[in-house]
Design a protein around this nucleic acid. Sequence first.
DNA 1: TTGAAAGCGCTACCAA
DNA 2: TTGGTAGCGCTTTCAA
Lengths: 333, 333
Amino acid sequence: MPKRITSIEVAQHAGVSQSTVSRVFSEDSPNVAEKTRNRVLKAAHELGYRPNVIARMMSRRETNIIGIVMANMTSPFYPYVLDKFLQRFQALDKQVLLFTVAQGQLVDDILPLVLQYQVDALIITSATLSSDMADECARTGTPVILFNRTVSDSHVSAVCADNVKGGRMIAEYLIKTGHQHIVYMAGPANTSTNNDREQGFKTYLREQGIRDWMRVQADYTYESGYAVATELMQSDTTPDAIFCANDIMAVGAIDAIRAQGLQVPDDISVIGFDDIPMASWGAYNLTTVSQDVKMMIDKTITILQQKLDQPDSQPAVELVEGQLIIRGSVKSR
Amino acid sequence: MPKRITSIEVAQHAGVSQSTVSRVFSEDSPNVAEKTRNRVLKAAHELGYRPNVIARMMSRRETNIIGIVMANMTSPFYPYVLDKFLQRFQALDKQVLLFTVAQGQLVDDILPLVLQYQVDALIITSATLSSDMADECARTGTPVILFNRTVSDSHVSAVCADNVKGGRMIAEYLIKTGHQHIVYMAGPANTSTNNDREQGFKTYLREQGIRDWMRVQADYTYESGYAVATELMQSDTTPDAIFCANDIMAVGAIDAIRAQGLQVPDDISVIGFDDIPMASWGAYNLTTVSQDVKMMIDKTITILQQKLDQPDSQPAVELVEGQLIIRGSVKSR
DNA sequence: TTGAAAGCGCTACCAA
DNA sequence: TTGGTAGCGCTTTCAA
């Protein structure tokens, strides 16, 4: 077992006290004479010393670790989110302990584990947590921020795209471009993203007195988008537009429509939501509503800092507006 | 500041010693009377106690944390890899501390930080590390496994697709299907994946005495694939096949070819490497060589376990063969 | 089977 | 500016 060098050994080697070594390696090592510092650094270097952050966590009683729980890693939207978070946190000298929620697992199942790691804060993407768990987090003083979910619970903060608004924008755009038989392809019913997008969409249609639309159920995957669109094509309904609750289903739908020998957008318009990288790929050229991920991440980090600085501050809920990105998958009729 | 419950408080509440509480919460709490155990568990439950894993790390001097360094998160291949790793490690009660290598940063830059976290082991994807750093890891006794890179250094283990073989398979297939003017679209020259794929490809052609092929340089992104393919179309070279060193460039190339009014595969065949999810999407239907990610991850975890059980065991290097996945982007000529 | 006590490697307070 | 020292919350001998 290769021995790890500790501050005591460095102290001995440098002929100073262990406290002094500690001071030298503290962020704000205030009171160390330049000469002493150099002596310590030299000794440390010679011995190959690196402070043990675990021990530091113990005494400081803060870990500088942010827990991120991702339910949905392989959906194209999230790697980008994760990467951005990592970059931001690394720049803030915070590390990320990452957890995934496996198939058939609930966020609630793994949260106790996450809390054991004494994370300074917790970001949960694409999932909600029970109010029991929210309470538990509150008890341990762990700030929680839901990313891409809205909340009802008053203990937790949330940052989310303005999905209601986005759904509304899409309805508005499809109507304006003359579509009359719109199909809404839904994501899982228990996701706030789907529900909000759907609600915004429906509300606008209702306001306009439009009743000729229908809803089909899918589950946010390419495969479901493909399958449900295929079914739709093979039934006797003939929509002139499909609003898919996310881009990845829209891509599946486009492939399905083409597989039936139809054209997008000439025969059917397709519109998505998210603006994932593939939306701009030539083969799809998908009109969609973007999520301002950068802004969402900025807000998340702001809220986090706020909560870390003032643990008693109120939880914040922020909605971030997206933009209609007009490409080529919707036709004016 | 919400006070966190410690084992001492549980002990008092249950009327036992702190050591006993500790025993109850140890994995293999061997010597605790059933009655005592229940009393402790009851007290713990009432107080909402959760063991502090950071303190546990201190005394056990092992963290059960695996560090993963990902250079390339947003490339479609990696989220899947990461997700699989997370699931496997969570099942083994190991947690993942995730690091990304930002633009312009080297793995070497962040490794000292990673090591400070006393990770039990380190997985580095898509990047190599200097032998200095490899030495440093060896000194601290931290096993390192490179994922998707081959190694020259004798201190580190590696698991990698058999890229030479894959490149060879592709060359063989393209020749067998009658292609005569093949272009190799390269990834970054400093990646072993590119170099190995290219070498396998070139070797086969050389063996067959085929000299009519060319090489263009891209960088593993959709955009580069698109741009370089466009250039190619607009020049007076007329390849009948493009072998793109990864799928994402292949997708870009296909979009570019179509944007020029040409057909894939009728005018030009395109073949990729990786078998990312998008390769099977209807719009591309890309012929490619799969990476057997599941197998690669299995091997990685096996090596890891081995190194953790016997720290002195030799580093292992494993190559995992992929398979030619024939779809519709290559035509027999 | 249980308890007492000595660390683990740091930080932070108090004195010098 | 430095050193001494008391924890941080646990694990792990060693004795009882």
